[in-house]
Amino acid sequence: MRVGTPGFVPARLTEARAARRIKTQKTLAEALGVVSSTVSRWEKGEITPDADALSALSDTLGVRREFFLRPVYQSARPMFHRQLSNTLTGDIRYQQSQTSWLQELSSILQHYVEFPAVDIPDVLGTASWKQLREEDIERIALELRRHWNVGEGPCGDIVPLLERVGIVVGTIEMGTSRLDGLCSWSPDGERPHILLATDKMSFPRRQMDGAHELAHAVLHRNVTAREFHENLKEIEKQAFRLASAFLMPSTTYPHEVRRPSLSTFLSLKERWRVSIKAQIHRLADLEIIPSDYVTDLYKLHSAKGWTREEPLDREWQVSEPRLIRDAFNLIINSGVRTKGDLLAVEFTMSPEDIERLACLPSGWFIEREGKLVQLKVPEVSHNERSWGAGTVVPFPQR
């Protein structure tokens, strides 16, 4: 009689299936050579896989066996993503699984490395996010800039700012342009984690995505999962308004718009590094331009073919997060652990998964960690170097 695996965590199987974009239990069952009801019962926790089945799961899903014996790294708070469309269910689950893995990496690394303290001011006090008015969000944007000493001009690169205030940032390729980023909290509820998509990425788009997820971390920490699903539209509207107000402060940016036109916005894009479309939306929010003119600007923007890519989008290099990557390098370079130790003891996902989430170079885990010794090369005299290093071979006579 086969005995199941004690301590098997069903949610980890569901997570791994989402991480590998295996949409159905039937598809996984076919890959394993078992009936689909078996996979279903594993995920429900009704039965657990035996040792052979656990090894097959490990091989098929590209994780270590111990992966299924550890708890899921996930907060009780919701993960904030932009859409709830049924057509994106698989993509959303993939994004959520990668965010959980980012939280797991972060949690383990913090056993060895001290991350920056979380510095997100309490801008709501005793108020609820539901009570926020547009003028409140504008005020909060300016308060955040003052608190983080950003000034009231262009923000600069948003990613280093996120990491400086204690937010863990990761990036992944989503395979769709319809999902941009996701904000979540660590299981202890203290540290925000942001996962940004890299698909068709430009610097202005990265700026808005990062600021949008930052807005969730500032405004929506206490939103429940039920509130999120019931109020997604309003929550997203608040996040976009705060992101726009943070990147284009009401006290400075509008005063630089001499005449609202696409050419003006293109000139301002070079300075403020936000998209032309976002600038139009910002001026509409501030009611600086009438709604009918906003519509005309959007139509002209689309007619120029700028919906997919605007001028200057390729002008600036998109930076990568450094916090997780630097933590790995610090641990290895200081000799606290070896790469092999980390893979064998600490982490249960594949090296490729870790390298991707941590923005480490591909193959980083198989690179040598440094040469402690090397072959001694005997010194050679000048004459030997000049004349004794080769043999003269005559050409054959014809």
Rank of each mutant, 00 (worst) to 15 (best):
T264V: 10
G33C: 05
K23C: 05
E270M: 10
L61S: 07
Y298S: 07
P249T: 06
D296I: 13
L300P: 07
S261E: 14
Y298T: 12
T224L: 09
E43F: 08
A29P: 09
L109H: 01
E138N: 08
L124K: 05
E43H: 08
A245N: 08
G4W: 08
M201N: 09
F67Y: 15
W387I: 13
C183T: 14
W42I: 02
A243G: 02
E104S: 11
H220M: 06
R21Q: 14
T252S: 08
P154D: 01
H212P: 01
V345G: 00
L61T: 11
Q103R: 11
L196F: 00
L214N: 01
S302E: 15
M79P: 09
A358I: 03
A31Y: 11
M201S: 10
P396W: 14
R325P: 03
R21C: 10
V218C: 02
R70W: 06
F246Y: 09
V118A: 00
Q397Y: 13
T391N: 04
K304C: 07
A239R: 06
Q110T: 14
R325Q: 08
M174E: 07
L372M: 04
R271N: 07
P378S: 00
F265L: 05
S184K: 05
S107T: 15
P192H: 00
V373A: 00
A141G: 11
A245H: 08
K26I: 10
L132T: 03
W306N: 03
Q317E: 11
G305E: 02
D157L: 10
R17S: 02
E66F: 10
P260E: 10
H111L: 06
D52T: 12
P10M: 04
W316C: 06
A344D: 14
A225E: 15
H212T: 13
W316A: 05
E256F: 15
A16R: 03
S275F: 03
S386L: 14
V274A: 04
P290L: 00
